[in-house]
Simulated scan of single mutants.
Amino acid sequence: MTRPTDLLPEGLEDRLPASAARITTAMRACLDVLHRHGYERVRPPLLEFERSLASRMQGIRTQAMFRFVDPASLRTLALRSDITPQVGRIAATSMKAAPRPLRLAYCGETALIRASQLDPARERLQLGAELVGADTIAAASEIAMVAIEALQAAGLTGISVDFTLPDLVDTLAERDGDTDPDQIEAIRRELDTKDAGGLRDAGGEAYLPLLYAAGPFDRALADLRAFDAGGALGTRLDGLEAIAARIAAVHGDAVRLTLDPTERYGFEYQTWFGFTLYAEGLRGAAGRGGTYRIGGSEEAATGFSLYVDHLAEAAPEAERGRAIYLPLGHDVEAAARLRAEGWRTLAQLGEGEDAAALGCTHVLEGAGVKELEQDR
């Protein structure tokens, strides 16, 4: 019977053994990919001064974070909701003198005061990579392709990448000489909701073609080039085409490429390039990435983030491995040898235990292993 005191807050949940094993397996697979590509892992603290977190990335809202006063310093602390700003701080301070480009990886828990309707979880395991000191096609391509490889290593299939241009409206407004910030924000809002009527009412009729320049990458890119008669987007569109070509050269039709140039959800601090990752069997996005500037140093960087506990929902079930039951008085040296060979062992603690019910497939007899008879 569940007591009221046993209930968890909304958006938080226990991960039982099968789910926890699936998350751990996916996490290790992703981190192995980052390690093989030269990304070195850092571990920022769970808490930081609120002001520090807010200053490292444009668009970071500390109101979405749990905050409280540090009794030691009497300054406001914040429980991180995103690890990327912390990696930016590390790159700009402790590793300021490290050779560039700097490749860093991370994995850790994050928390939100409120979750979105699209993703009700308030605690997430964030894993990612940041490539600091490069704002090039090569850097953006590497990050996107490493992110795809990480998802594949975690066992996800049917992967698709949706490109976007986070600063698109700003670029077009600058081209057209629009300086009214309220109108520009209204145009962004109507583009976000894909509302043609609202876009006209906001004075953004010239932006209407952007609502339809979305879908399969090649067609959407052609529509964007036709819209960009003055060439203000030329460099950005050439960059997207080059990145897509590199992904297609490696993955062919195995990875689907799409383009939605006005998508801004989840791109609070990205600059000219952004992408969202999707996978078969997964509700919502598997992860996001793009280019940005580190606040304070203004150094260019490119990165991606995956939420492992979410993407693990579509990952294959983790293998439990072979398990051997160790009876009372068993040969401890034989048991140690079996563990070194990769077996799992469960030692008997008392009379009346059921080895099969405990998940064992074998039993140690002397120095040998015997398979348990399973109920048919």
Rank of each mutant, 00 (worst) to 15 (best):
G133S: 08
D375A: 10
G231M: 10
I243W: 09
A279H: 05
V132D: 01
A134E: 02
E13W: 02
T93N: 06
A356T: 05
A115N: 09
T302P: 01
E263R: 11
L8N: 04
I294E: 02
A254P: 09
E351H: 02
F49L: 14
C30Y: 01
G368C: 11
L208I: 15
K370F: 09
G281A: 08
G234M: 11
E319W: 07
M95D: 00
P166V: 03
L168R: 04
A300E: 05
A26L: 14
L259C: 11
M65W: 01
D201C: 04
L240K: 13
A91C: 05
L221V: 00
K370S: 13
L358V: 00
L47A: 11
G133Y: 03
E351A: 12
G289M: 05
D178P: 13
T76V: 10
E109N: 13
Q63S: 15
V42T: 10
R200D: 12
G215K: 03
E174C: 14
A312F: 09
L259K: 10
T62C: 15
A323D: 00
C30V: 08
V255H: 06
A173K: 03
V146S: 06
L79E: 01
A248Y: 02
A300Q: 07
H362K: 11
H310E: 10
M27N: 12
E205C: 13
E353G: 07
L224F: 01
L74W: 07
G197F: 13
D176L: 09
R56A: 14
H330E: 00
A97D: 07
R80Q: 09
D135L: 09
L364T: 02
G203P: 07
A121R: 15
D162A: 05
R100Q: 07
A214L: 08
A300F: 03
D223Q: 12
E341S: 10
D182N: 06
A244Y: 10
Y207G: 05
F217W: 05
A286N: 07
H310N: 12
